[in-house]
Design a binder for these strands. Sequence first.
DNA 1: TACATTAGTGAGTAATCACTTACAAAAGTA
DNA 2: TACTTTTGTAAGTGATTACTCACTAATGTA
Lengths: 173, 173
Amino acid sequence: MTEKQENILNAALTLFAKEGYTATSTSKVARQAGVSEGLIFRHFKNKEGLLQAILQQGETRIKELFIPILTTEDPKEAIRLTLEMPFSVTESEFEFWKLQFKLKWELEYNNPEKMQPLQQALTTAFQQLGYETPELEAEFIMVFLEGVSTAIIKDNMSDKRKFKEFLVQKYKI
Amino acid sequence: MTEKQENILNAALTLFAKEGYTATSTSKVARQAGVSEGLIFRHFKNKEGLLQAILQQGETRIKELFIPILTTEDPKEAIRLTLEMPFSVTESEFEFWKLQFKLKWELEYNNPEKMQPLQQALTTAFQQLGYETPELEAEFIMVFLEGVSTAIIKDNMSDKRKFKEFLVQKYKI
DNA sequence: TACATTAGTGAGTAATCACTTACAAAAGTA
DNA sequence: TACTTTTGTAAGTGATTACTCACTAATGTA
């Protein structure tokens, strides 16, 4: 991976996350990255290939985020870690997550199976805690997680710290 | 409003909701509506004007949806109606709601103040029911509502009926 | 009827789109 | 060093973009 190649990926991530995939032209990416437009196609074949390269980079990061939740033995910790996840998105990951949510709506790019392992872990957790309908409890959290993530990315939450505390209290975890 | 004008609005709503605003060209809208491309600009000035005309049509429908929630005296009913709202989106309203969610991510088109009256009504409802932190409870529902709506529009919910019953039971309403 | 306004069309426009090509510079390899 | 491969650029390509213009057809309105 050359320096210019990285510049292209960074510029594309920033622009795609800010303006959207369709609305961002390859010439704009090239200008922002400080390279010729042709270089994008040399390295990534086409615009779609550029997007895939960005997504593949992020795929790894997503899986790493899930590891502690999937490996913990304590069911309460699994639930707490899940609920806290959207609150612990770092500055550097922010653009990638925003892009992820944008693409879900911009392209018909639906892959809920990526979240399936997490939902399964939550189901098991609620089962261990003796809940009557653990599948529905897990689905409830997953659905709620979508809302929380959206609110955080769009900066629509009144007080993140307070809200997070409220959640922990609600689930007594 | 002439017939061709309505055809344009319908075609644009369908295409914007399916392919996105940026990805839909005015020539495509004209073809789908069965009119000349120039007519779009005659009636709506530009592409942006066409979008605004669609959104204004829907604005009225949104406000009507809120009326029963905002006017009921019973706090439990207010909460129940709110939670049931995304489940009762009709076939004809579906496209409009999908567009609404798409635009939230595609354009920097953020208007949470549209939902503010609803959140205020929920806060009052939880207050009347004696909850300790009614503001946070209301915000919880609003955040959750975002997740439910997304799941329904993207058809990511295992069993809508079961999930809805689960919600009603959870809030004892 | 005479005239003004509105509705509608078809063929344009310059700009931008994703992408290609021909070629040069740099880097790796023997 | 001699040669191949990779990296990079500048200047294109045809197609498509949002939008305009000159014009006709239809619809008021007096």
